[in-house]
Each structure stands twice: as C-alpha cells, then as structure tokens.
Amino acid sequence: MTEPASSGAVRWAVVIPVKPAAVGKSRLADGLPGGVDRAALARAIALDTIAAAAQAAGVDEVVVVTADDEVDAAASALARVRVVRETEPKGLDAAVAAGVATVEAPGRGRAALLGDLPALAPEDLADALERGASVERGVVADSEGTGSTLVTAVPGVPWLSAFGVDSFARHRAQNFVALDVPADSTLRRDVDTAAHLAEAAVLGVGSRTAAALGVVPAVIPPSGASESLA
C-alpha cells in the first residue's frame, strides 16, 4: 500500500465536473422566485464553486470538466483554472476521471469536488484537503450525510470515485476514510433544491449566485423552501 503523505505536504489538483446548465440543477426549478433563470443560476453556482476552489491554500490547479460553453468561457478566465471539454457527457464519475487523467504532475494529490457549493469558503476546502493528505483516499459527506461533496486521493494512489445516489456509503464501502470536517463547514452544503439554496444563502453565497438571485443573500431565511425564496 502507498504510504500516505504527511499532513499538509500535498499539493492538489481539484477536478470539478459541471453539467450543461440546460440540464443541470433541474430540481431548483421548484421554489425559485419569479424572474430567476434556473440555467443562469446553475452556472453562477458552479462558477462560485470554481472560484472558491481556485483560492484555497494547497490547490495548484482547478480542472473544470464541462460541455457548457458559457461555463467554459468564464472559468477559463480565472487564475489557476483549466477547462477540459466534455464532448459526450457520461456522468459524474466519467467526467471526473477525464479530468484526473489530464493532471500531469505525478506528485500531486487529486480531489473531485462537486460544482454545486455556492457558499464554499476557500479555507474550508483547504482544511479538508489538509485532512485528506493523511489518508490514501478521503471523502466528505454532504449536510444530509448521504451524498459526497469531496473525494481525495494522495499521490501514487489510483483514482477512484463513486458519485450518485447514497455515494457517501458507497465511498465508505470502498475504504474511503470519512474526513472529519466540522458539521457546519461550507464544504458540506451542496445545493439541489430551493431549501438547500436558502441554507447556503445564510452561510453566504458567492457574488455570482447572489447576482443571479437578484437578492442580498443574507436576508434569505434557512427554511421554508419556496416561501423563503419568494
């Protein structure tokens, strides 16, 4: 087995798969206030996630895998971000694997981060990656404890991921170590529904997401789904 790197010694490439906005975040359509474009919001959420990841300590590059032209153009303009075009989307694991395959530095750790974390704070990602440096493969659960928002592999460990329904349990069954990030970490609040978005807004969403919503994020209450976003 590969000896895990010492904590904090690993530099990382973070791969973020982003679905085309036309089909991404379809569950957000229910509960959004009038005038909010779901596709534009989906792109904003992804770009806020990408920007935060690129600012995290320990991250050398962010690899965005997408077929969305607008995400491609906007992400390519960000420092430390590289885009891999996905010509035929085949699911999250395939997209992540395609991104990981382009990471050329053999001594670099690899991580896959979901692109739906609009409140992500760079320091929360940096903290999780530092924890991931001490295990071969790590995983961070979402706020509900069923999904996975981040998976990691240190240098020399073959890449593996199992995103999808109940992904946290499936990652754990494949010997991923649950990374002990705080329960209130912004890394855990992914957004699939209007209720999730309201909770993320209380944490403080990024500027793109706030602009797409057309509101001051801090005034959105954390519960009540459609009523809270009306």
Rank of each mutant, 00 (worst) to 15 (best):
R131M: 15
R131D: 14
G132N: 07
A133Q: 02
V135S: 01
R137P: 01
R137S: 09
R137G: 03
R137C: 01
V139A: 15
V139T: 12
V139R: 00
V140K: 00
D142C: 10
D142G: 11
S143M: 13
S143T: 12
S143L: 10
G145P: 04
G145I: 13
T146F: 10
T149A: 07
T149I: 12
V151F: 07
T152Y: 05
A153T: 06
P155H: 08
P155G: 06
G156W: 03
V157R: 10
P158K: 10
W159K: 08
W159Y: 11
W159E: 13
L160Q: 14
L160F: 06
L160K: 11
A162G: 01
A162S: 08
A162F: 08
G164N: 11
G164C: 11
V165F: 11
R170V: 10
R170C: 06
R170D: 12
R170W: 10
R172G: 01
R172Q: 09
Q174E: 15
Q174P: 02
N175K: 11
N175E: 15
F176L: 07
V177W: 00
V177H: 11
L179T: 03
D180G: 12
D180W: 04
V181C: 09
V181P: 09
P182G: 13
A183E: 15
D184H: 14
D184E: 15
D184Y: 07
S185K: 07
S185A: 13
T186N: 09
L187M: 06
R188K: 09
R188A: 03
R188M: 08
R189A: 10
R189C: 13
D190Q: 15
D190N: 15
D190A: 15
V191W: 05
V191T: 08
D192W: 14
D192L: 12
T193Y: 05
T193S: 15
T193Q: 12
A195S: 15
H196R: 01
L197G: 02
L197P: 08
